[in-house]
Amino acid sequence: MLDGSLTAIAKMYLAILIIAGLVSVASFFIQANQGNEYKQYINYQIERNGGLTVSAMEKLNEYNNKYYDGRFKIESPMMNQKVKYGDEITYTVTGSFKILYFDLPIQTISIKGSALSLIR
């Protein structure tokens, strides 16, 4: 009689642990996908502002803080420079992600991107 109760409790505990793990993994991949969304917004700002200019960086930082809680950082050798029409700007977006329910270190993922300046 006691074996059946212990087995049922163990199965419930294991099921809860598996569900928490699946939710954590799903949450991590959703946050990682937000890096691609932010990269698209960076491309738009580069095209509209002629590079990673001061005004473009202000808009990007505001957007990052508003929608992603400041999770992303942009690195580029062409920061705060306006470039001519058709020049390619390369950059790297680095995101820091916390995994839910588990005491794991913060994970960082870097996404490389590039865009063309469309300002004459």
Rank of each mutant, 00 (worst) to 15 (best):
T7K: 10
G35Y: 01
D69Q: 14
S55P: 07
A115F: 05
Y85S: 03
N49K: 13
Y44V: 12
N65G: 11
L104T: 09
N33S: 15
I106C: 00
I111V: 06
T94C: 05
G21Y: 05
R120Y: 13
I111F: 04
I16C: 15
Q34I: 04
T108W: 00
I30M: 15
G4D: 09
G35P: 01
V54I: 12
L6S: 13
Q31C: 08
R48D: 12
Y41C: 00
M78C: 01
G113T: 05
F72A: 02
F102L: 09
L100C: 01
K112H: 06
D87Y: 09
L52S: 09
E62H: 11
F102W: 04
T90G: 07
M12P: 00
A20C: 14
V83Y: 08
S24K: 09
N36T: 10
M78G: 01
E47Y: 01
Q107K: 10
V54F: 13
L22R: 05
L2W: 08
T94G: 03
A115E: 04
I74N: 07
M78W: 04
V83F: 10
G113L: 03
S5Y: 13
E37H: 12
D103G: 02
Y38S: 02
N65P: 03
V25H: 08
Q107C: 00
K59C: 05
E58W: 01
N43Y: 02
T53S: 14
N36M: 11
A10P: 01
I99L: 11
L118T: 09
Y38M: 06
D103W: 03
Q31T: 15
S5V: 14
I119E: 15
L116Q: 10
F28E: 03
S117W: 02
V93L: 15
L104Y: 07
D3S: 14
D3P: 03
I9R: 04
N61L: 08
E62I: 07
F72Y: 13
I74S: 08
Q34F: 07
R120Q: 14
P77Q: 04
M79E: 04
N80C: 00
T92V: 15
L100T: 08
K66H: 06
V54M: 11
K59I: 10
G35N: 02
Q81N: 09
T90P: 01
S24L: 12
T53I: 08
S24W: 13
Y63S: 11
S5L: 15
N65R: 12
E75Q: 09
G35R: 03
K98E: 10
N65I: 06
M12H: 05
K112G: 00
I9Q: 06
K82Q: 14
V93T: 10
N43G: 14
N61H: 07
Y68R: 02
A15I: 11
E37K: 07
